[in-house]
């Protein structure tokens, strides 16, 4: 039987990495926590194999990414529908240009916080490729294969997402 204490140590060591990956891909803390739990339960099922393996972080990251993409694919139709609407993109850029609407507190803000919030608020079809590109170091081709879209669409979405984020930095 798996040692629960050993697994708890494993969990405490990697929970930030798994949660961060899920949060950046999903943009929703509640869903990220659910996904993190799912990933760790999968890890628990094969803890005998990965518990002491040096490839555990990579395994966790890959499984987290896959679970998140599966989660998002449930909304793929809506995602594709909105991704075709250039108006939505324009609106997103406008909203970032004018700053986050729910900040509530006037005055200078931490650029990291603003950028993080802007990244979370990007539509999934822009946020996911940007996260896979900048945080998981996947190539355009790999992202296109993972998402089941064309390389051109990946480039376009990353470009538009970056433009929206760049507006926050200005």
């Amino acid at each position: 039987m798996t040692d629960a204490r050993a697994f708890e140590a494993f969990l405490l060591e990697y929970q930030d990495m798994v949660y961060a990956t899920a949060l950046r891909l999903l943009g929703n803390p509640m869903e990220a926590e659910d996904v993190a739990q799912t990933v760790f339960m999968k890890a628990f099922e094969r803890f005998d194999q990965i518990g002491t393996s040096p490839s555990a972080p990579g395994w966790l990251k890959t499984v987290t990414t896959n679970v998140c993409l599966n989660h998002l694919s449930r909304y793929r139709n809506r995602w594709r529908f909105f991704s075709e609407l250039s108006r939505a993109d324009a609106h997103a850029v406008d909203s970032w240009t004018s700053g986050p609407q729910d900040s509530g507190t006037p005055g200078p803000r931490d650029p990291n916080t603003a950028l993080d919030e802007a990244l979370m608020k990007l539509p999934p079809h822009q946020r996911v490729p940007i996260v896979l590109f900048h945080f998981d170091d996947l190539s355009y081709q790999e992202i296109a294969e993972r998402l089941g879209v064309s390389v051109g669409k990946v480039k376009t979405d990353i470009h538009r997402g970056r433009e929206a984020l760049r507006a926050v930095l200005r």
Partner: peptide, 19 residues
């Protein structure tokens, strides 16, 4: 800036619910 973004920390509730 993207590279320097700090990694979000897991909420305190995650470990207890997983365990």
């Amino acid at each position: 800036a993207l590279r320097q973004l700090p990694e979000p920390r897991a909420p305190q509730t995650l470990a207890p619910r997983v365990m």
